[in-house]
Write a protein that binds this DNA or RNA. Structure first.
Length: 201
DNA sequence: TGCCAGGCCCTCTTTAGGGCCTT
């Protein structure tokens, strides 16, 4: 049995907490052995106004956020849902800074590493037209999980992309005539390299 | 109104600059 990953995606009011941006929606997909075990998704009201261009991009309106549960309650729930499971995101540097910032507002700290499907895709799939999540999903023929730029759909797309990358890493290390034990060892090495590729520095 | 960040990585690089990617 392979490791379990918590694939996360935030929608936000902007590009960085450093300029006052806050999370507006979060989703996490628990992913193991090529399938979704469980998921969490919620809008979250952080008391900020979402600019009109981001409303259009995500479809998350200020009216929707007015009736959403408080950000503090949602972050406590999602952090408990994730526990110590390793986190994965597409462009993890982005989601990591919002995860850390929103948890810090609760007086809590991240307990695990973040892996990044963007960095892995750049290394393992250099032939792709570009490395946006939507482009890679279409290019690799992965399932379109719903409306792009909504948290649960993007988290599911990133989970399928993670599986595609894990499979690609294993395939690129394959040599004919390997004994089963050798193949298992090679996959462990590939998985370790995946972790190394994806860990934000 | 328009803008705001920041890490990674490539190259016409390393005493730096700029594109990509996230919303």
């Amino acid at each position: 049995m392979s490791a379990c990953f918590a694939v996360i995606d935030f929608e936000t009011s902007g590009l960085s907490p450093a300029v006052g941006s806050r999370a507006t929606e979060v989703a996490v997909v628990l992913w193991q052995d090529g399938r979704e075990l469980d998921s969490y998704q919620s809008l979250m009201n952080a008391g900020v106004r979402v600019p009109a261009d981001i409303e259009r991009l995500t479809g998350i309106s200020n009216a929707m956020l007015r009736t959403a549960p408080p950000a503090a309650r949602v972050m406590a729930e999602v952090a408990d849902f994730v526990g110590d499971i390793p986190l994965v995101a597409h462009n993890a540097a982005f989601d990591r800074k919002f995860w850390d910032h929103e948890l810090a507002l609760l007086g809590r700290q991240r307990r695990q590493d973040f892996a990044c499907t963007l960095l892995l895709a750049r290394r393992l799939l250099p032939q792709a037209p570009d490395h946006k999540l939507g482009t890679l999903t279409r290019w690799a023929g992965l399932p379109a999980a719903g409306r792009a730029h909504r948290a649960l759909a993007d988290a599911r797309m990133a989970a399928h992309l993670l599986q595609y990358l894990l499979d690609t890493a294993a395939r690129q290390h394959h040599r004919p005539g390997l004994a089963h034990a050798e193949l298992c060892q090679l996959q462990k090495v590939a998985a370790a390299k995946v972790g190394e590729f994806l860990r934000p520095r």
